[in-house]
Design a protein around this nucleic acid. Structure first.
Lengths: 340, 340
DNA sequence: CTGAAAGCGCTTACAG
DNA sequence: CTGAAAGCGCTTACAG
């Protein structure tokens, strides 16, 4: 039924070895033979069996991206499609297929990745999350298998990472509020165990300190990457006897929650409270008022991650850097402008 | 280096055939042997080579999902992550891996799918879009390869499809506006070549006709699934000498554009114009005012599509239905409520 | 420049 | 219940 290399060989009057060499553009094959073989391949509709090729070559031309478990980091949904689009675009361009995998529990996740790695199912792994003490990362290191992570990881200094400079980004956001004349600036953070939360908090603190403004612990609220979290943070902050006049918010979705709450309570943005946020998702622009946000280059993050992972796979010993920083950019909109 | 079935066999004192049978739970293997072999597998860390297995079994335990090209149907981004999550959850649960592929041009798209199909890279294909006269579908039919499409396709009656009843959904949305006392209802549509646009228009028309209200062509505007489109539609409609008092809008993102435009021009929703939309994306709830929307069960769409495709793959001749309808549900919010 | 042969790691009739 | 053998479709030294 299926057309194999043998069928091509027979029809072209050569050996299977020769056909194989034609396919892989072996240099020592005559132009003439090559042309004849290619013609036959077209005629009888030959397509190489990827599985057979993989088995003998020990490569798969496939990378796997591991999604965060639904339970955690649901916020990823927001940039999920953008990162994936970046990854799939670049991997396709490099001739690699993309496998998506996930697990519902930590154990399942580890099992899945182990199966892919040990079963030689893929050539590299891309982790779409960054947790501390991750057994998956430990396993990948142990197996000496090519992988990259989007985000930063403090446990290992020598792994391939693609990330933003979140400290600097948050510093920039805070500086912007200061330049608008704010002196009482709060910070609404995400889960404290995530590195991204910590980095953004650090940048905020740095900017506030530098400007000799107060860093007050009651103006720093932790939560999840959910709108409900924003709502709660807002209630807390607005209930204080001394309130901030501006907030740096760790994620656009959280800002949405804050905004809704403020509107409900009859406050006005940016007059009563100014907001700057992160990620610059499409809807930041569509909010009322439009939200100022740090664009972190989500697509770029995915594109670069795929590129660097594949580069790593192809040159056994990577000569280039392990840590890659995607530039960010503050997009100023109405939510942070001081009305004069 | 890698542990193979032979290593296990040697260590367990059996033949490779026996090990293979243990792995596949062959019934005629003694409990004792099975246990011994499994123990050895654990001890030396055996993981089956998926490629070798695929080569001989002619199955891959993998399905591919084909993304719409960036150029078209960008709106898919919005439900993209939800559909994918549904698909990946279900396929993982069924023991299938998920491959993602796409192409930048129609030709590239066809080539990619052909390579996957003819190269026996996957066991089934899931198309995430529904176009008329699609050469990819023609090829899949011709090759008699298992595939399913999310959406409806009129070219072939006998293919596996997973869709909403968009006519009914739109009918329901329109009825809701009528029940709120509206008699002048317009429709903002998507690209006319997409079946989803046509179906939703049909449902709207049906409801309006049935209520003996006017169906006016100047109240029906076509566009893209983009906010800019909504903005433009709004300008057009509000510039009419006789304006509608309510709109059914084909997609939430378009509604965002409409809403922004209305706010800019000083109109109020729902007082001046009521809105009902489709998809019920997270941000519908967060808009000011919150947008009434038809929840089309995006996750469910993906979950069911994966389930039916895999079922199809596993039973050569499917005894069950080919067309699957995911139920929808109107979520009423402020944007469509008539203030009394 | 090309071919015959061995082998990648598994499965599966066939035979016992 | 288990083993020896053939084979899935390819690649790649080795030899010429």
């Amino acid at each position: 039924m299926t057309v194999t290399i043998k069928d091509v060989a027979k029809r072209a009057g050569v050996s299977p070895s020769t056909v194989s060499r034609v396919i892989s553009n072996h240099p020592r094959i005559s132009e003439e033979t090559s042309l004849r073989v290619r013609k036959v391949m077209d005629e009888i509709g030959y397509h190489p069996n990827m599985m057979a090729k993989s088995l003998v070559s020990r490569t798969t031309s496939t990378i796997a991206v591991i999604l965060p478990r639904p339970a955690d980091e649901l916020f990823q949904n927001l940039f999920f499609s953008e990162v994936i689009r970046g990854i799939v675009t670049q991997s396709t361009r490099s001739g690699y297929d993309l496998l998506m995998a996930t697990g519902t529990t930590e154990r399942e996740e580890l099992e899945t990745v182990t199966r892919l790695v040990r079963g030689r199912r893929v050539d590299g792994i891309l982790l779409l999350y960054s947790r501390a003490n991750d057994p998956v990362i430990a396993m990948l290191k142990e197996a000496d298998f090519p992988f990259a992570i989007i985000g930063r990881n403090e446990d290992y200094p020598d792994i391939l990472t693609i990330d933003n400079d979140n400290v600097q980004a948050s510093y920039d956001a805070t500086r912007h509020l200061i330049s608008q004349g704010h002196e009482r600036i709060g910070f609404v953070s995400g889960p404290p165990n995530l590195i991204v939360s910590r980095d953004r908090l650090a940048g905020y603190t740095k900017a506030v300190r530098e400007a000799r403004l107060p860093v007050r612990s009651d103006w720093i609220v932790e939560g999840e990457f959910l709108q409900e979290s924003g709502y709660r943070a807002m209630s807390l902050l607005m209930g204080l006897p001394e309130r901030p006049t501006a907030l740096v918010v760790v994620d656009d979705v959280v800002t949405f929650g804050i905004l809704c709450g403020l509107v409900e309570l009859g406050y006005s943005v940016p007059k009563d409270i100014a907001l700057v946020s992160f990620n610059n998702i499409v809807f930041s622009e569509l909010a009322t008022p439009p939200i100022s946000s740090i664009d972190i280059g989500i697509y770029q993050l995915g594109y670069t991650a795929s590129q660097e992972l594949i580069r790593f796979i192809q040159h056994e010993h990577p000569s280039h850097a392990l840590r890659h920083i995607i530039p960010h950019r503050l997009v100023v909109r109405e939510s942070s402008l001081r009305r004069s």
